[in-house]
Design a protein around this nucleic acid. Structure first.
Length: 346
DNA sequence: TAACACGTATTC
DNA sequence: GAATACGTGTTA
C-alpha cells in the first residue's frame, strides 16, 4: 500500500486554504480516491452514453438542495459542505448545490458516505490519481486543468491541490474534521510508519493507540490504520466520546448490542432467504460503494422518474440488491483491502 | 437482458 | 400520509 503521500509534504502547496489537502492535513487518505474516481468515471460514461446535457442539468432546480445544506451544515459547521459533490466536472460551484441530490437518510446502522467502497479496492494508492496524466479519462481532465504534470514526474512527487477538484472538495468533510479534530499529519505519519514496525520508522501503531490517550476532543474520529493490506475490517475507526472513550465500531459491535445488519434486520432470517422471509424486502447492505453514496445523480432514469419509477438512483443501488435474492452473502467479505477497512459512525 | 412501470413494504 | 425504495412483471 503506497502511503507515501501521507508523510511527504515536500512540493505541497495548497492554493486555497479551503482546498482539500492530502498531505497537509492528513485525514483525507482515509478516503479512497481511486474508488471515487472510478465512480465518477462511471458517471462520465453514463452521461456520455445517455447524452445528458450537463448545462441543462446544472441549470436544473433540485428541490433537495436545501436539504443537502441542512444536513451537511450541522455536521460540519463552517465547512463548505453545503457544496455537494458533482460526478461531472462542474466548475460552477454555484450550481453544485443543486447538481446533486441527497438521497434518503440512510439507516443509522449503515455506513455513511465518503468512506472507501468495498467493491473498488485500491491498495496501491489512496489519492493523487487524478494527477496522473496516464490515468483514466476523468483523471486526465483533472490533470489538464491543473496544468498537466507529466506522469514521468511521478504520481506523488507534485501534489497540487486546487480547490476545483470536485471530488476532492466533496471530501472537505474529512478535511474539516481534520482541522477541528486535530487528527493531524503527525498522527497519520505515525500510523503510516507504524506497521513498518521493527524495520520502519519506529512509529506508533495507531490501531493500538486509543484516542483517549491522545486527549482528543469528543467526536473526533480516530482512524487506526496500518501500512499494509492486512488490516482487518473492523475497529480501525473509532470515535471519541465526551469522556474520551472510544465508541467501538458498529460493524464490530454487531455481535453484541448493536443494531443488526440490514441483511439480518428484523423480519429477515439470516441472509434474507430463510423460511418465511422470502417475501421480505431486502435492505441495502450499507457498505458497498453505491450504498455509501448519499447523493442521487439526478439524471439517471431512476432519478428522473422518481415519482413513477419508485427506484433508487442507479448509482446508489446496492450491489447486493442487484444480485439475485438467493445469493446474499451472510458474512463480511473474507478479505478486505486496507482501503476498505474504514467505517464512519454518524 | 436491460430498462421501465407498478405494487407495495418500509420509514419518517 | 408522503416519500423512499425493493420486488417483480412487462416491454423493447
Amino acid at each position: 500500500m503506497v502511503m507515501s503521500g501521507l508523510t511527504r509534504s515536500s512540493g505541497v502547496h495548497n492554493d486555497r486554504s479551503d482546498s482539500v489537502t492530502v498531505d497537509g492535513c492528513g485525514l483525507t487518505p482515509v478516503l479512497d480516491y481511486t474508488a471515487e474516481m472510478e465512480r465518477y468515471q462511471s458517471f462520465a460514461n453514463f452521461y456520455a452514453k445517455t447524452n445528458v446535457n450537463m448545462n441543462a442539468v446544472n441549470g436544473m432546480n433540485f428541490p433537495q438542495s436545501d436539504k443537502l445544506a441542512r444536513i451537511t451544515s450541522p455536521m460540519f459547521p463552517g465547512g463548505r459542505l453545503g457544496v455537494g459533490v458533482t460526478p461531472w466536472g462542474c466548475h460552477d460551484n454555484a450550481n453544485v448545490n443543486a447538481a446533486m441530490l441527497w438521497g434518503r437518510k440512510p439507516p443509522a446502522h449503515q455506513a455513511t458516505p465518503l468512506a472507501p467502497p468495498t467493491t473498488h479496492p485500491s491498495p496501491t494508492t489512496t489519492h493523487m490519481q487524478p494527477h496522473r496524466a496516464d490515468g483514466q479519462g476523468g483523471e486526465g481532465k483533472q490533470h489538464a486543468r491543473h496544468g498537466g504534470h507529466a506522469s514521468s514526474q511521478g504520481q506523488e512527487t507534485h501534489h497540487h491541490h486546487h480547490g476545483d477538484n470536485n471530488f476532492q472538495s466533496g471530501y472537505a468533510a474529512a478535511n474539516h474534521m481534520t482541522k477541528q479534530g486535530h487528527a493531524h499529519q503527525d498522527m497519520l505519519s505515525l500510523s503510516n510508519r507504524s506497521s513498518s514496525g521493527n524495520g520502519g520508522g519506529g512509529g506508533v501503531n495507531m490501531s493500538n493507540f486509543p484516542a483517549g490517550m491522545l486527549g482528543l476532543p469528543p467526536g473526533v474520529i480516530v482512524m487506526a490504520m496500518g501500512s499494509h493490506n492486512n488490516i482487518s475490517d473492523s475497529s480501525h475507526f473509532q470515535m471519541t466520546t465526551n469522556h474520551n472513550q472510544l465508541l467501538s465500531d458498529c460493524h464490530h459491535a454487531n455481535q453484541t448490542n448493536c443494531s443488526p445488519c440490514p441483511s439480518t434486520s428484523p423480519g429477515m432470517t439470516s441472509g434474507g432467504q430463510g423460511s418465511g422471509a422470502s417475501k421480505r424486502k431486502r435492505k441495502r447492505c450499507g457498505v458497498c460503494a453505491p450504498c455509501r453514496r448519499l447523493i442521487n445523480c439526478g439524471v439517471c432514469s431512476a432519478c428522473r422518474n422518481r415519482k413513477t419509477g419508485h427506484q433508487i438512483c442507479k448509482f446508489r443501488k446496492c450491489d447486493e440488491l442487484k444480485k439475485k435474492a438467493g445469493s446474499v452473502q451472510l458474512e463480511s467479505p473474507p478479505s478486505v483491502p486496507s482501503g476498505e477497512a474504514f467505517r464512519w459512525f454518524f
